[in-house]
Amino acid sequence: MEKKGTILNIPLFRKKLRGKTMPKAPASRETVESIKDNIIDEAVSLINEGGYADFSMRKLGSRLGIAAKTIYNYFSNRDELYLKVVTRGFEILHECMSGAHSSATSPFTRIRAMAGAYVQFGLDHPHHYNIMFSMDLPKYADYIGTEHQELAAMQNETALQTARLAEKAFRDLAVKNRKLRGTPTTHHLMRVWATLHGIVSLHNSRVTLEVGDFRAAIDRIIDETVKEFR
């Protein structure tokens, strides 16, 4: 018999009334989205701990305190859930980067603000960051020709939105800074990205605890990374 459980204190199973099992009223859209969000959040933690190969609906259900088959009411299989996890991460990152882009008043301050926003995202969402950028997990190309190709393409497009936004910021800066015009925009973008990724990865690995207060130096490292573009 299926165990009773809740996600975010939202009943997932049918209610009993006067000894009879009665169908539960259809959940509201808000309720369904809340349940999905909680499933995604727990999936992020589980994938971060054991990778994709060790990720299963059974283990996820155990973590949530529900039967695995209940999760299938919201996600068709683990591939769909995994792609939703990655998409959610890139949506959050794009929101952070877009906010930084909009708040800046000049091409250079825009680059600096976006660099800071990228690092802050990585520090605030370390599990999502690992899944998106550090772990060896399925990518869009792995889903080409499969039933999930369309969903994977949507996830890939969400990621590319952020890349295009950053590339535009460098193109705008090149208009003001002649030194940047002889080198492809993607070169500058990749070089800065590599440094920012290193900052996040070193911090989140906690290895820097052995050498001092690394977090206190992050702003200065970012400043030094982008100062040549001033």
Rank of each mutant, 00 (worst) to 15 (best):
S201N: 04
Q155R: 05
L209T: 08
L151N: 04
D172S: 04
D142E: 02
K24T: 07
D136H: 15
I221R: 04
T208E: 03
A43E: 01
E224P: 04
L64N: 04
E147H: 09
T146R: 08
M135I: 05
V207Q: 11
R78T: 06
N130V: 00
L83A: 07
V119D: 01
I111N: 04
M97N: 06
Y143K: 02
P126H: 02
Q120D: 13
Y72R: 12
A27Y: 12
D213N: 10
P126D: 01
V200E: 09
S98W: 11
A117S: 11
V86D: 01
R230E: 12
R110I: 08
R215V: 13
K16Q: 02
R29H: 12
D142A: 07
K139D: 00
F121H: 04
M1D: 09
I10N: 04
A216Q: 03
A141P: 03
G116K: 14
H101R: 14
G89R: 06
T70Q: 05
T31G: 04
G145D: 00
E147N: 07
C96Y: 12
S62C: 01
F90W: 10
L180M: 11
E80F: 14
K69V: 14
T225I: 03
T195P: 13
E95F: 14
A159E: 13
L123Y: 13
M97H: 10
T162F: 11
V32S: 03
R58A: 12
A152H: 05
E157V: 11
L196A: 13
A67T: 07
S56A: 01
C96D: 04
P23G: 02
I39D: 02
S34T: 14
G116C: 10
R230Q: 13
F133N: 12
E80R: 15
G19N: 03
P138K: 10
R58E: 12
F55M: 00
Y118V: 01
N156K: 15
S34G: 15
G198W: 15
T183P: 09
T70L: 06
G65D: 04
P126W: 09
F214M: 05
F75A: 08
G50L: 09
Y74E: 01
S45W: 05
E49C: 06
F121S: 03
